[in-house]
Write a protein that binds this DNA or RNA. Structure first.
Lengths: 214, 214
DNA sequence: CTTACATGTTACTTGCGGTAACCGTAGCCT
DNA sequence: AGGCTACGGTTACCGCAAGTAACATGTAAG
């Protein structure tokens, strides 16, 4: 096991890997989340088994692809979160960054959000959420870190931050998903509405006078 | 086209349909969301084509199954939302109802959340979120109705209520999903943390003194 | 020249969603 | 009776996509 050649070969393998991921990206962009391994291989100018040699199975390819996009998105989100501004502004900037991203590449977004699992026969374990934590989990964890790091939440702050991280990310995701499908308002309006929600406007609002059932 | 026999036959068909749904429920409970049509048919004591005669395709079965559970869950949620209590209490009761439900039947919950689409060849349209709006969408819409009906949000109330409905449901879902997987705290703690978030504690909290980067 | 290894291919298996074509039995009509 | 349709059901199949085995080829080292 001399390492001199190994690195050389590994470099080549890594380059191939990156090329394959680019191709996969393109075909997912074009065909949506139902992209088949055959199609991806064809786009890359090769055939299926090579994909499997590189990524193990479709989950592996998915994971690698997801990591790329997640890393990119998380970079942008972190930048928005760490900007030197009021918290409200930062929150709005972060929401807007996320929404702009999913608006710009809805196909990729769909692909990332729906692992579309379904092990053919090997249905091992399956402890509910134990596997396939694609993008939301990582975003939730990262947001939790930022919250814990920058917001003073008292003794139980750590736990609170994690709950909030996942909760806020879920809010963003669900609202964004719905918004992408129906386009009921402009992006800034959506951002403002969500920020208002996070800012406690639900608690501050008064009860409505008379309902339809009175 | 005499309707006398028609109703009779329709009753029989409806009973069969219900039996099939019960069977599907059982097998989903047992095998998780990857339950195959074959397995479901076998559990029902029949074969595939009959399922297809009743439900059209897998999406149809999914929709029928989802409707059952969604209706049940929404009933419980509405009851919690409409209880004669302070808004904060109602919100906490609603959150707890949802979390208790997913805690009690994680398999079904997983099935409902992941339509696992993927049109084999007929990739018609696919306008991102245009089709397959399974459980979250309905919950979001219902919650939006309740919010709009009971909370005074001023002129843009309707739009705000819809955004919030979907956003809050997404928050609940994501936090619940993460919590189910990791069990980092008790259910009441989670409920309280989420309610605190909705109550604007994020806005009220102060900045933390010194960060790691200073 | 041969060995060893990485790269790539063709051709296959398995399993699933979905469908076509067939089979038996109940009823009802002439 | 005998034959007709209508309905509940089955077997056997198609197409497709994931994943794999076995075979081909180029190329550097001994």
């Amino acid at each position: 096991m001399d390492t001199t050649q190994r690195t050389d070969q590994q470099r080549s393998a890594d380059r191939r890997r990156r090329e394959l991921l680019e191709a996969a990206d393109r075909v997912v962009l074009r065909d949506g989340p139902g992209a088949s391994m055959n199609a991806i291989a064809a786009e890359a100018g090769i055939t299926k088994p090579i994909l499997y040699r590189h990524f193990g199975d479709k989950g592996g390819l998915y994971a690698a692809l997801a990591k790329r996009h997640t890393d990119a998105l998380l970079g942008a989100l972190r930048a928005a979160l760490d900007a030197p501004a009021e918290r409200r502004e930062r929150v709005e900037a972060t929401l807007d960054t996320y929404l702009a991203a999913i608006e710009a590449r809805p196909q990729v977004y769909r692909f990332l959000m729906h692992p579309s699992e379904g092990g053919p026969q090997g249905d091992r374990g399956f402890d509910v959420g134990a596997y396939s934590f694609p993008l939301l989990r990582r975003m939730g964890e990262e947001l939790a870190d930022v919250i814990e790091e920058r917001v003073d939440l008292g003794p139980d702050g750590q736990q609170l931050a994690r709950v909030w991280g996942h909760g806020i990310v879920g809010m963003m995701h669900a609202a964004g998903d719905w918004w992408l499908g129906e386009r009921p308002c402009s992006r800034p309006e959506l951002v403002r509405a969500l920020a208002d929600l996070l800012w406690g406007r639900l608690a501050a609002a008064g009860d409505k006078a008379g309902g339809p059932s009175f």
